[in-house]
Nucleic acid binder design. Structure first.
Length: 923
RNA sequence: GCUCGGAUGGUGGAAUCGGUAGACACGAGGGACUUAAAAUCCCUUGGCCAUUGCGGCUGUGUGGGUUCAAGUCCCACUCCGAGUACCA
């Protein structure tokens, strides 16, 4: 009987299903462990061989933890709202729900074939009303909250309303984007609509006029993480900056906590670093610069307060509100022309051009320390959205100011001794200050760092500014002009003000529309829905929520997926708490992984969840790239030349389907059948074979390099696929998929099978294992246990192979040895392990078998060989009986002093004892 | 530009604390079995030299340094990858 993976895998997949092997429930008698994969978006293309990499890694960990006695939660679901289904719907008229449903079915079939231990009873789909009810619910909680900066947490907006009625906005400790202050009388005198509008500046989910990334091609706004270099990540279309009224989430209020709490979680340094950069902590000072001939003052932000003596001009962002206040009549025409020019440039054009541009406003400001008058300019190198949208320019020590000063021929005053500023600015925060003293402030002779501190102190005392922390992190834009997303549980009252639906009206279900396009009047697709009104007849919001809405709290829903009273019950949340191990790609570093942490912290503030961070440990699996194959057609012929002979001909490389190439050898018959135009192809072969060329590219249909896991499973079995994906290299590393090595792991499984069965006869017996066999298996137990904890799965697979070779060569037939082997192998190759488990006559399933523990006694060497070095040079080898390594070596080294004299005629000066069987004697 | 990774045979990759570099696998070469092929098994496989013996030299991107000992630590550089980018 050969290793019949088809039969085995079918049999046990059915068994696990019939016996609910992977179903989990709260069990207070056992410690919990929560292993989670980033759930997939079910695309029409199905899974390729790269997708399961992370799923296999987490599956191994989940199975291992279960065998170590943990109650393991390991769920799976679908991030089912999204753009591709909607675009497909626009093209075909097919409802996104139908295509999504179809794709999910296909994903499930593919996943099932690989033998994952998911508890499918807990499956979630973000597009199901019973799921998005809780997305909508969370949004409403955010709408009804503000961020209290004194308590550093979210609080009910009603508390703020009460405060305004008593004290106005002064000292209200609320995170806000409001510029205006108001008194209690003013507040109380406002109409309901005015109050509602004012509160929008404080709510955590708010409707605000913000600069958004507008993508005309997609007809929707995008969040910052959905845009890269002025191009939309989905689709690759240009994106413009535009002010629009959009729903936003006050993520920026949480910037400090999002940054601080990174210290409490076990994520890779690189992804923490990415988040740190994205949040962008920057400590500096805000300073006021009076404007000549005006009561207005310019408020600027700087991290280099020390350079105040080198300020030779000021710059405002074109969108800054100060612009109107400083532009003079004689500069009006020039300024308007410039603003117009800037407005019509897209983000992309600005980034590409990168040339210095700007215009003089006509006004001057007064340097509050030197008293000098300096011109105020307007330029698009200053961003409206960061700091105050205005800067003090110090051309000697900032490269952008330097470029601007050179372009407009403005003075440059060096402030650091020895800095050469003839060609470029000196930006480093390092050196001794000069040109920086007067009767008010003396910085000359100080180090830059001391000067920064001294200046900050001075400006606070002199009342011209204050120390301030700025974050780069912006509020998340939360509305999309799309159909296939969560509707907002918001209607508009007679004043046009947004109002909450009642919790009892949730979920607000996505309505039917005749077309999935914007309306003729340019409203979002929901504008087409009939009767899209709340229970009171008022119109409902037409936008839908973005993709990250549904994925922000899904890990909580898995804890209690069928609860219709709460997102998650207190009981379930307090048992499962947080995700202990989260596996997914790095591409979500500044999107999902920020939003999820924000969402979780918001829920934490109200006690809906008991952990401040959602994902304790994060492992980023690498991307699997494609390995394309090429054939080389001789120009103007239908003749193809083998790879190593192509240099003699003028050829065109053509992508060839990697599925008809094996170890770079082309299957010529399959090639002829592949495309009609190749049916009569001729070949120039080497050694009777056609060798293809290859290249590493993205895995995609157009490159014909997509490898489908189903095909691998059909050919080699799921266990081979699982082992091979792990064997390819470290889970975290990106690597090309190369089917070439898969025979090696497949051979390993066949060899293992061959040790158990000869023909149909089971070879194993109840036999006391030899010391040799015990050593081999305990070495494996130690290695695999340690490897799994560290995600070094590739070296584990190597260890399995070594062990099988050892057991084979020592002809070990002891059941107890194989029993341990099978348990160790089961997380990696669950099907064959389950089969052998039963062959060995064990009860239950291998999933519940206890993970074996290694015994150091068995691992000891009976004889240890030592190399003795003199002055680092090996002189002789000796063997001694095993003992405690350190002690033995000490005595050994000293007892060989005679030998040292004998060799060198000298006494050893010192004897260095180091691990790994080397003794070094220094004479 | 800034930040963070990385560079080891023909290939993917091992080397846990600085301690015999190249585990394991692929590929390649040779052999056994076979009428033949596939499958399977055995041997060789970093490079150079020697191979009627042992063996010798060299070798982890480049150049220095620390150390009895460096792929690993330090300094400088080259190249590659990722993130981010007029963030004041």
């Amino acid at each position: 009987m050969d290793y019949n993976f088809k039969e085995i895998e079918k049999k046990w997949q059915q068994y696990w299903k019939d016996h609910n092997t992977y179903k989990v429930d709260i069990d207070n008698g056992r410690p919990k462990f929560y292993v989670l994969d980033m759930f997939p978006y079910p695309s029409g293309a199905g899974l390729h061989v790269g997708h399961p990499l992370g799923y296999i890694a987490s599956d191994i960990y989940a199975r291992y933890k279960r065998q170590k006695g943990f109650n393991v939660l390991h769920p799976m679901g679908y991030d089912a709202f999204g753009l591709p289904a909607e675009q497909y719907a626009i093209q075909t008229g097919q409802h996104p729900e139908i295509t999504t449903e179809k794709n999910i079915k296909r994903y499930r079939e593919q996943l099932d074939k690989i033998g994952f231990c998911y508890d499918w009873d807990r499956e979630v789909r973000t597009c199901e009303p019973s799921y998005y009810k809780w997305t909508q619910w969370a949004f409403l909680q955010m709408f009804k909250s503000y961020y209290n900066t004194a308590l550093d947490k979210a609080r009910p907006i009603d508390e703020l309303v009460e405060y305004f009625a008593k004290n106005g906005s002064e000292g209200c400790n609320a995170h806000t984007n409001a510029k205006e202050e108001f008194t209690a009388e003013q507040w109380n005198g406002m109409t309901k609509a005015e109050q509602s509008q004012t509160l929008m500046n404080y709510r955590i989910a708010y409707l605000g006029n913000t600069m958004v990334n507008w993508c005309p091609k997609l007809g929707t706004v995008l969040a910052n993480d959905e845009v890269s270099e002025g191009i939309s990540i989905r689709g690759g279309y240009p994106v413009e900056q535009k002010v629009m009224r959009q729903w936003c989430l006050r993520v920026s209020a949480y910037a400090g906590r999002l940054l601080r709490d990174l210290e409490t979680i076990e994520w890779s340094e690189s992804i923490k670093e990415t988040q740190k950069n994205w949040i962008g902590y920057s400590e500096g000072a805000e300073m006021l610069f009076p404007i000549v001939g005006s009561d207005e003052q310019l408020l600027i932000f700087t991290t280099r307060a020390d350079t105040i003596f080198g300020v030779t001009f000021m710059v405002l962002a074109p969108e800054s509100e100060y612009v109107e206040k400083v532009v003079t009549d004689d500069q009006r025409v020039a300024v308007d022309a410039y603003l117009d020019e800037v407005k019509h440039k897209t983000e992309r054009e600005r980034l590409i051009e990168k040339k210095v541009s700007g215009v003089f406003s006509g006004s001057y400001a007064i340097n509050p320390v030197t008293g000098k008058e300096i011109p105020i300019y307007i330029s698009d190198y200053v961003l409206a959205g960061y700091g105050t949208g205005a800067i003090m320019a110090v051309p000697a020590h900032d490269s952008r100011d330097y470029a601007f000063a050179r372009h407009f021929d403005l003075p440059i005053i060096p402030l650091i001794e020895g800095a050469d500023i003839s060609e470029e600015s000196f930006d480093a925060k390092d050196g001794i200050m000069m040109n920086s003293s007067n009767e008010r402030l003396q910085l000359n002779g100080l180090q830059v760092k001391e000067a920064i501190a001294k200046t900050k102190k001075y400006i606070e005392e002199a009342g011209i500014g204050k120390v301030k922390v700025n974050y780069r992190l912006r509020d998340a834009i939360f509305s999309r002009q799309r159909y296939w997303g969560e509707p907002f549980p918001i209607y508009y009252d007679e004043d046009g003000q947004p109002q909450c639906l009642d919790d009892s009206e949730l979920p607000l279900q996505l309505p039917e529309v005749d077309k999935f396009l914007p309306t003729e009047t340019g409203e979002p697709p929901l504008g087409r829905a009939k009767n899209w009104v709340a229970g009171n007849g008022r119109p409902l919001e037409l936008n839908t929520m973005p993709g990250f809405a549904g994925s922000s709290a899904y890990y909580l829903r898995y804890m209690d997926p069928h609860n219709d009273k709460a997102l998650v019950s207190k009981e379930a949340n307090e048992y499962w708490r947080q995700v202990d191990l989260y596996v997914g790609g790095t591409e979500h570093a500044t999107g999902h992984l920020i939003y999820s942490r924000f969402w979780n912290k918001f829920l934490y503030d109200y006690g809906y969840v008991c952990e401040a961070e959602p994902f304790r440990k994060l492992v980023n699996q690498g991307m699997i790239q494609g390995r394309s194959n090429f054939v080389y057609r001789i120009k103007d012929t239908n003749k193809f030349v083998s790879f190593n002979l192509k240099k003699d001909y003028d050829t065109t490389p053509i992508h060839v389907d990697v599925n008809i190439v094996s170890n770079d050898v082309l299957d010529i018959d399959a090639f002829k059948a592949w495309r009609p135009e190749f049916a009569n192809a001729e070949f120039i072969l080497e050694d009777g074979k056609y060798i293809c060329g290859w290249a590493i590219e993205k895995m995609s249909k157009s490159m014909f390099n997509v490898v489908n896991p189903d095909d691998i499973v059909a050919r080699y079995g799921a266990d081979t696929l699982r082992l091979y994906e792990m064997f390819l290299g470290p889970v975290e590393a990106s690597k090309p998929w190369d089917t070439n090595g898969i025979d090696g792991v497949n051979r390993f499984l066949k060899r293992l099978w061959g040790l158990v069965f000869k023909g149909d006869t089971m070879q194993l017996i109840d036999e006391k294992p030899s010391a040799e066999a015990l050593k081999s298996i305990h070495k494996l137990i130690k290695k695999v246990s340690q490897d799994i904890e560290q995600f070094s799965y590739n070296t584990s697979v190597a260890a399995f192979m070594i062990c099988v070779n050892e057991l084979s060569s020592m002809k070990c037939r002891s059941k107890s040895v194989y029993r341990d082997f099978v348990v160790l192998l089961s997380p990696f190759a669950p099907h064959i392990a389950e089969e052998l488990w039963h062959v060995l006559g064990e009860e239950g399933t291998v999933c519940d078998a206890q993970w074996p523990v290694w015994n150091e006694e068995y691992l000891k060497e009976s004889v240890v060989k030592y190399t003795v070095l003199f002055n680092g040079k090996p002189r002789f080898n000796i063997e001694v009986a095993a003992g405690t390594p350190g002690d033995e070596v000490q005595r050994l080294a000293l007892s060989h002093e005679g030998a040292a004299r004998w060799l060198d005629g000298k006494q050893p000066k010192k004897v260095i004892v180091v691990p790994n069987k080397i003794v070094n004697v220094v004479v």
